[in-house]
C-alpha cells in the first residue's frame, strides 16, 4: 500500500515534465496542424540555456525559466515566420520532414556547441525532499510539477482570455474565416509556434533538474509528447495536462513491473498509443472534430 502510494506520487511528479513538454506540442499541432518533430530539440535548447546560466553565473534553475521561455519564443517566432510558414499548406509529409530537418540542424548545432557530454544542474537542494510519514517527495520534482501546472494554466489563460489567444484559436478553427475577419495569418502562426516553443523552453529548464542532458536527450520527449497529446485529446490544454499526468503514472507503474518493465518503455508507450488511437481516437478527454 505504501509502495503503491509512493509510486502514485512519483508518477504524478514524473507527469509534470510530460505536461510541460506536451502543452507546447499540442498547441502547435492543434492550431497549425504540424507535428513538430523538432520539439524535443527545442526543449534541449532551453535545457542548455539553464545549464549555461547555472554553471557560468550560478543562477538558480527555476529563475532561468523565464529566460528559457523568452529565448525559445524568439527562436520559435523566427523559425515559423522564416521557414515553416513556407510549407504550411503542403501535405503533411512535407511539414513532417521539414520539422525533422530543423530537428537535425538544431541537435547538431548543439553538439557542435556543447559536445555530447552529459550535463547536469545540481542546485544545493537537489537531493532534498519533503518527507510525509513514509512518503518521500523530492523538492525538484515537486517544483517541476508545480511550474508545469502553472505553465499550462498560463497558456490556457492566454488562449481563452486574451485577444491574441482568441485569434490563435480562430486560426486553428478556420483559416479562411479568420483571415476574413482581419487576423494576420503569418503573424498569428508565428505567435502560435513561438508560444509552443516557449513552453518547450520551460520544459527543457525543468528537465535539467530531473536528468542529465545531452543534445539528443530531447528526442524521446518528442515521441512522448505525441503520446501525451493523443492520450488526453487534441485541442485543449486541460486534456493535455490530464494526458501528461496519466502518462507519468503509466510510465512509473510500468517500470515497477517485476522483470523487465523498464526496458520496454517505448514499447509500452507506443502500444498504449496505438490502443488509444484505435479504441478512442479523440483521446480520453477530447471532443470529436
Amino acid at each position: 500500500m505504501v509502495n503503491f502510494l509512493q509510486l502514485l506520487v512519483l508518477g504524478l511528479l514524473a507527469g509534470g515534465v510530460y505536461v510541460g513538454v506536451g502543452v507546447g506540442f499540442g498547441l502547435v499541432w492543434g492550431v497549425l496542424n504540424i507535428v513538430n518533430l523538432a520539439h524535443g530539440a527545442l526543449v534541449m535548447v532551453g535545457g542548455y540555456l539553464t545549464w549555461t546560466l547555472f554553471t557560468r553565473l550560478g543562477l538558480d534553475p527555476f529563475l532561468s525559466l523565464p529566460l528559457d521561455a523568452l529565448l525559445l519564443f524568439t527562436i520559435g517566432y523566427l523559425l515559423q515566420r522564416g521557414v515553416i510558414n513556407r510549407v504550411i499548406r503542403a501535405p503533411l509529409l512535407f511539414t513532417f520532414l521539414l520539422t525533422f530537418g530543423v530537428n537535425l540542424v538544431v541537435i547538431n548545432l548543439l553538439l557542435l556547441l556543447f559536445k555530447s557530454d552529459f550535463r547536469s544542474v545540481t542546485p544545493s537542494y537537489a537531493g532534498a525532499g519533503l518527507e510525509l510519514g513514509v512518503l518521500v517527495i523530492p523538492f525538484t520534482r515537486l517544483g517541476a510539477l508545480v511550474v508545469a501546472l502553472l505553465l499550462a494554466a498560463g497558456l490556457a489563460f492566454v488562449l481563452n482570455r486574451t485577444r491574441t489567444g482568441l485569434a490563435i484559436q480562430a486560426v486553428g478553427a478556420d483559416r479562411d474565416a479568420a483571415q476574413l475577419v482581419g487576423i494576420d495569418l503569418r503573424h498569428t502562426y508565428a505567435l502560435t509556434f513561438a508560444l509552443g516553443a516557449a513552453c518547450a523552453g520551460v520544459a527543457g529548464g525543468l528537465i535539467t533538474l530531473i536528468q542529465a542532458i545531452t543534445p539528443t536527450a530531447g528526442e524521446p520527449y518528442t515521441l512522448q509528447a505525441f503520446v501525451v497529446v493523443i492520450l488526453g485529446g487534441l485541442g485543449r490544454v486541460t486534456a493535455t495536462v490530464a494526458g501528461g499526468l496519466l502518462f507519468g503514472l503509466i510510465e512509473v507503474f510500468g517500470q515497477s513491473i517485476p522483470g523487465s518493465g523498464s526496458v520496454y518503455a517505448n514499447a509500452i508507450a507506443f502500444g498504449l498509443l496505438v490502443l488509444v488511437l484505435i479504441l478512442r481516437p479523440q483521446g480520453l478527454m477530447g471532443r470529436l472534430r
Binding site: N33, N266, A267, F270, L273, L277, I278, P281
Partner: peptide, 30 residues
C-alpha cells in the same frame, strides 16, 4: 490492418512507434 485505419499524422507516428517498439522487443525479449 489496424495501423492503416489511421490517417495523416496519426499513421505516421504510430508507424514510427511500431518501428521503435519492434527493435526494443527483439533486443529484450527473453
Amino acid at each position: 490492418v489496424p495501423l492503416l485505419r489511421l490517417r495523416g499524422h496519426y499513421f505516421a507516428v504510430a508507424s514510427l512507434g511500431v518501428g521503435v517498439a519492434v527493435g526494443e522487443v527483439i533486443q529484450n525479449v527473453e
